[in-house]
Amino acid sequence: MKKVLLSMAAVAMLFTACSENSNDADQEQQIDMSDFYVYTDADTDEAAKQSQGKSNSKSCYAMVNLNRQLKQNPGLEKKMYDVEYHTRKFLVAKGKPGGGGGPGGGSGDTDVDVLPIQDNLGIIDIPVYIHIVYPDANSISNAQVNSQMATLNADFRDVNINQLPSGTTFANDATDAGFSFSLAGTFRHNDSRSSWGTNDAVKAAYPPITPDTHLNIWVCEIGGGILGYAQFPGGNASTDGVVLGGDYFGNTSGVYGLGRTGTHEVGHYFNLRHIWGDGRCNRDDFVTDTPKSDRSNGGCPSFPTTHCKSADMTMNYMDYTYDACMYMFTDGQRNRMRAIFASGGARASMVGN
């Protein structure tokens, strides 16, 4: 009888294991990566701007920088695929399918990924190192540093004072992303170099400090009308972080003088794409509650500004509009950013440090 009971127990364990494996397989089948891409039209778009005499127009170089890194590092595409797979698996496991699901984006009829995710991470604090690299590093004051930190905290907690455009349909879409930022240290380097470009030269000269646990931000003269650029999760630790032009860092002057270049670039660092997907209408930013578009927007557009048969979310931090005219992340963007800090995520080592 004892042998019979043991045999029955073994069969039951085997059945349970098979059932669990089947459930795992079912979950694996829900991870749709068919729309995933890494290379974009960013290089072509920047070249077109210059050929049209727009070389002085301001832009973010994160996607151009990503294309460069992909060409230099053949293994980076696989790393970014793995980061994206983990992100979507996390969202599916929480009952919130990740953005995507097809070349045009979207994840079916329900868009449940835009609902709050109970990720048990609470408010995620990001310790920040600031590296100021100028001929006179004191030209960037402590007050300017503090103003940038204040903008990051306000924007990622949805407590900024920017106003909604009149008539917008996005009035209820702004969300608290659940991130705070604390200044861990400021390093000033007097360096006579007049322009650093976008090939990570400033990072090579002044390497990041503990990038696995800290966000590193370099403030320098980039040149070429570039406001800033960032590195996406999955890249080399020796170049991980954000580079910002000093004229666009914190509260300065002009239309990009409210610190939102920092918010935009940290969004990339947290795995957000540009809101228009850096391509035509069939390119997506992998977030379902941001409308499709085929171009960036500048200035302070009136509402609605329509491309790809829908109104653009021009006030989103991941567009190119003036600082005073952007005010929001969406629920889907929040969930996507927070996924990389969950267990096994590309920036999980930053949590609790």
Rank of each mutant, 00 (worst) to 15 (best):
L5P: 00
A10K: 03
A25T: 09
I31S: 01
D41N: 12
E46D: 11
A47Y: 06
Q52Y: 13
Y61E: 10
A62C: 15
K71N: 15
K71L: 12
G75I: 04
L76W: 01
E77R: 11
K78M: 13
Y81D: 06
V83R: 02
Y85A: 11
T87Q: 09
R88K: 09
F90Y: 10
A93F: 06
G95N: 00
G101L: 01
P103V: 11
G105Y: 04
G106V: 07
V114G: 12
I117W: 12
G122V: 02
I123T: 10
I126C: 00
I126T: 00
I130W: 12
P135A: 13
I140P: 10
N146G: 10
M149C: 10
D155S: 13
D158C: 08
V159L: 03
V159M: 07
N160E: 08
L164Y: 04
A171M: 04
G178F: 08
F179E: 02
S182W: 01
F187H: 14
D200V: 06
D212R: 09
H214Q: 10
C220Y: 07
I222S: 12
I222G: 12
G223M: 09
G225W: 08
G228W: 11
Y229C: 07
A230Y: 11
T239A: 08
G250L: 09
L258V: 09
L258H: 14
L258R: 13
T263W: 04
E265F: 13
Y269I: 08
N271L: 00
G277H: 02
G279T: 05
N282H: 13
N282I: 06
D289H: 11
D289M: 08
P291Q: 00
P291M: 01
S296L: 12
C300E: 06
C300W: 05
C300T: 09
P304T: 07
P304E: 03
T305K: 10
T306G: 04
D319F: 12
C325N: 02
C325P: 02
M326W: 05
F329T: 09
T330S: 14
D331H: 15
R336S: 13
R338F: 01
A342Y: 03
A342M: 07
S343K: 13
S343V: 06
R347L: 08
M350R: 06
G352R: 06
